[in-house]
Amino acid sequence: MSASLVLILLMAVLYAGGVYLLLGRSMTRMLLGFLLVGNATNLLILIIAGPAGVAPIVADGVEPSEMHDPLPEALILTAIVITFGVSAFLLALIYRSWRIARADVITSDEADVAVGGADSSMDDEESNEAEDGSGEDTEFEGRAEAKTS
């Protein structure tokens, strides 16, 4: 099957713009990028679906091969609605972030950074090693019956 050059170019532009926005630090930009990438992906499915046709509605005198492929349509329809739900969720996240931190910008995750700097804590643990050395030669530190009974 041959591809429509216009649609492919448009899809590339949508992907490029979407990814550019997605890589920003602003949550609003990321959401917009998400929407653009969503559109681009729907377009990808549409391109792969093949050439244009009549709406896939059974009617007299319309052959299945003349119709636009209904399966990708169903997939895209699902994708559209889910994208809507997810972007509503992301919007709520943006709002929440703004309300709590007054920030629309994603900063570096402190927990992640802390993991990276963890080897000092390991040294600490090693220095504790001597701490329970007193009971080296017994499990019955200070409670042997010889001393109590």
Partner: peptide, 24 residues
Amino acid sequence: VRAVIGVGVGIVMSVVAVVALGSR
């Protein structure tokens, strides 16, 4: 850098579209 990655994704995906369509 963002723009370069974006353009890269765009190009790769358009080739994907062509190949996928051609494979049908």
